[in-house]
Amino acid sequence: MKIQPQALLRFSITAVVVIVALVLGHALWRHYMYSPWTRDGRIRAEVIRIAPDISGLVTRVPALDNQEVKKGDVLFEIDPERFRIALQQAEANLAAAKASAKAAGANVDAVLASANARRAEYDMRQDQAKRRQELADVVPKEERTDAKSSADTALAIWQQAQASGHQAGAAREQAEAAVVQAQVAVDRAKLDLERTEVRAPVDGYVTNLDVRVGDYAATGSPRLALIDRHSYYIYGYFEETKLPHLRVGDPVQIRLMSGGTELKGRITGVARGITDRDNPTGRDLLADVNPTFNWVRLAQRVPVRIQIDEDSVPKGVILAAGMTASIDVQPRRVLDKEREQPQ
């Protein structure tokens, strides 16, 4: 059998086109599967749950819902009357403590003076006794013994006065410590009074304001959420197949679902763990392994943190935590090109 040249030509043209089609189709498939982009990006922000540091009735709420506030602005105020009274009481206590410290100081002086008097008395009695002892021929024995014992008594009284002096000193120290204690109480009362005004710790937006005049605000229970306006970032949930093609520091193109606004950003980190959804703990503490199909495997999504370039946010664009964004990680050659340009 002889092959016609025409038939060979026909076959080879078709074969070449089919092979090229296979190569291109495979390349496109790989590109689509592994090029790092996702439509599953979420804008997130750091939320501060504002809770009062003291309990009390809410008397004033100057903040409005969704209002932009500056750091230090008053968000709401708790009735300060109770804390003002507490401060007055603490100040009165401080004054009393100061007065008693002064009294204790005066007492020490008095006791020291009396100890000096006792000492003088003891010196006198001691001298007397000594003199009488030296004149043993003239002075009767009874009188000498009396003089000796009255000198001993004077010594005991002096020592007692000395002990009283120590006691008075200790009492003064105690009174001084009570003054410091009262001062601390005053400072604390002042702090409490200051904290009746709940202030914004950062620049941000008031959200979900759920506090009204007349509410009772309890210590530590959050009353409103404050979103830090400089903390917006994006979590892109990338399929695990795409992870090898992105690196920390890669520039990304962000496209918001709202209005298709384009933003720029940069990868700042890749999450190093997600929950294994196929293995929750079942009853009796046994593993509850989910049966999966043998051939169909779902790629897990791993969160990749992206920092938004604040300069690239157009004026008037509203960013809200929870919004959806598409994320396209710029291929490495774009990055390299950018690096070459400044030189």
């Binding site: 038939a7 030509l9 026909r10 076959f11 043209i13 078709t14 074969a15 086109v17 089919v18 090229v20 089609a21 296979l22 190569v23 291109l24 189709g25 390349a27 496109l28």
Partner: peptide
């Protein structure tokens, strides 16, 4: 007439274009 299998050729051309 220069093509061996027209339907296969058409499918292949489509994949070349699309790819």
């Amino acid at each position: 007439r220069y093509v061996w299998h027209p339907s296969l050729f058409r499918v292949a051309v489509f994949f070349v274009l699309f790819g």
